[in-house]
Design a protein around this nucleic acid. Structure first.
Lengths: 346, 346
DNA sequence: GTGAAAGCGCTAACAA
DNA sequence: TTGTTAGCGCTTTCAC
């Protein structure tokens, strides 16, 4: 008496059930020609009965041209709206090609990034879209012996040439800062991420560019770098406004920076007196008081461009690595149009 | 003259390079005993040189106990903050077990849900965490011949018994509505998702429960269902306030509903006159004017509980399917505490 | 402590 | 039109 062990049906089971050979089932599953409609139907029936689901891994192992129809997406954190929209952009392009997107968060930690890349490589993804952490990426070049296509997003990898999709960070920061200068502000604060992160460094550059053009010296005491979370931003903003000669306007160089900054301004009753431009749009930006002026990146476009570039590479595109810039645009809503008044000093 | 074709190194290559057998390499890779430290070192060296990365799929195919250390997460949309935080909760638990989480969006479409489930099953994920779309899920019971562990999140599947992690939707809606009633409101609007979706139906129930307790008849003209996106919510809110006898307060039964509602109220200058409680917290909720009172779910807890339950199942837990409720809590910020005044009528 | 042989579920090349 | 054989990269069993 054979104990029937409960297990998923295999192609062999289907073949037995349908009374045909393994290969015939394979042909039906893969929509290959040279099977009569009649046997095809018999096979399909057996598939139904046994609830057979093909094993993609085994199929891929046997296939000569290996591609798993899956790509990996490494973002900094799933709960960052910017990353979420990049994901959405990638997903929309991938769906059209029936490619699965496997996303995971690095939390900005190079060690996590490393672990994830190996894990995904081991699962034979066809390519990577990566928001790189602040580390040297030279090791990526021949991480796997044979090169695997990678497109970088948001930031450039350090030390290697690769396709990159980013925003015009420096120009955006310059535009934002100049926008505040135009309203008469001369003491303009900056809150941005760690300067080891390219985007933050670029935004710092753009900020100083704008000041320089206007002939305003950079006051280091008005600049707070290393602002990652909204909590960091609260600390940073409090520091700026505890200053004996505080800023009359601030450029918040991250979505989280905007959030922290706005809450501090509100707490201090400064919301309508301090000019604010934030980097990155936010869901409720036009509903806060005053509505938040932002330099809005286009994360969906960034994600979909990255996916398109990656698929092009997978299709054989061997042009030299290129940098694609998706410009941000200024959305004036109010907070950035607050005029400087001499009595703004707190 | 053999043309060296560029390909990823295999375990065989490593074995040859190290001058040992296949099996010895396997032992080293998998940290199995019975290898001298010396040969172990030789193997590790070869791994380095060849940049060998094991093929997880092949390993898994050969292994007797099949588990891929990966789970699938189906959410409605990656760019919904609620879903993003569920993802975060799942990821945090999975990371501790070194399990990869593969997330994808169903966009609320049953056909997409089907396709994704088959795709992931074909990739041999160990289990599923699913935000079910509004369809009959009986087919899931034996979708794969052998059952694969599934935990449902946010909503119950239709027609099958399974583990579910949800919020106390009905009670939450009741609490929210009662909160508004306490402020004197008797004409209270409701905006919620399609009533085919369990959460929306439950919230509708809770809303009517609260009215009934207060002896207020339900006015169908104050209820708009089918509000999915923020755009839907704008239309819905306009409809409510074009009403000849409009509501003096509204319960927005979704994060997107809150967003659309707030923008309409602002546009109409009603922000400080109409009481609002929203379901789901939002990043800037305390910075809008007035700050938004919400029934805040705990999506991170929902996600991590779902992951824990799934892993328990994978570890052999065979208790009957259970429903776990993560209560939402009321956060009073202002918009929900606006008192009814007789002259509120628009 | 180490290795040879078989086989996981499937596709590829070729034979019938 | 259909089937047979070999083998993908790995683990398992069992022999040495």
């Amino acid at each position: 008496m054979t104990q029937e062990i409960e297990r998923r049906a295999t192609m062999r089971d289907v073949a037995a059930r349908a009374g045909v050979s393994l290969k015939t089932v394979s042909r039906v599953i893969n929509d290959e020609p040279n099977v009569t409609e009649q046997t095809r139907e018999r096979v399909r029936h057996a598939v139904q009965e046994l609830r057979y689901v093909p094993d993609a891994a085994a199929a891929n192992l046997a296939r000569i041209r290996r591609d798993t129809h899956s790509i990996a997406l490494l973002i900094s954190s799933v709960d960052n709206p910017f990353s979420a929209l990049v994901f959405k952009g990638v997903e929309s392009v991938a769906k059209g090609r029936e490619v699965a997107v496997f996303a995971a968060s690095t939390e900005g930690d190079p060690a996590v990034e490393n672990r994830l890349i190996r894990a995904f490589a081991s699962r034979q993804v066809d390519g990577f879209i990566i928001t790189p952490t602040a580390q040297d990426h030279r090791y990526m070049g021949n991480l796997l012996g044979s090169p695997i296509p990678m497109v970088y997003v948001d930031r450039s990898p350090i030390g290697i040439a690769a396709d990159v999709i980013t925003t015009n960070n420096r120009e955006s920061a310059m535009t934002a800062t100049a926008h505040l200068i135009k309203r008469g502000h001369r003491r303009i604060g900056l809150m941005a991420d760690d300067s080891a992160i390219e985007t933050a460094a670029d935004r710092y550059q753009g900020y100083t560019d704008a000041l320089q053009v206007a002939g305003i010296p950079v006051d280091p005491s008005l600049v707070v770098m290393g602002v990652g979370t909204a909590e960091d931003a609260v600390v940073a903003a409090n520091r700026l406004f505890d200053h004996q000669n505080p800023p009359t306007a601030v450029f918040a160089g991250r979505n989280t920076a905007s959030i922290g900054l706005l809450s501090v301004l509100k707490e201090r009753g400064l919301s309508h007196r301090v000019g604010v431009v934030g980097m990155d749009d936010l869901d409720l930006a036009d509903l806060v008081d005053p509505p938040l002026t932002v330099m809005a990146q286009d994360p969906i476009a960034i994600g979909s461009l990255a996916a398109e570039k990656l698929f092009a590479r997978l299709d054989g595109d061997d042009a030299p690595p290129a940098r694609h810039v998706v410009p941000a645009r200024l959305i004036e809503r109010g907070s950035g149009e607050i005029q400087f008044k001499a009595d703004t000093v707190v």
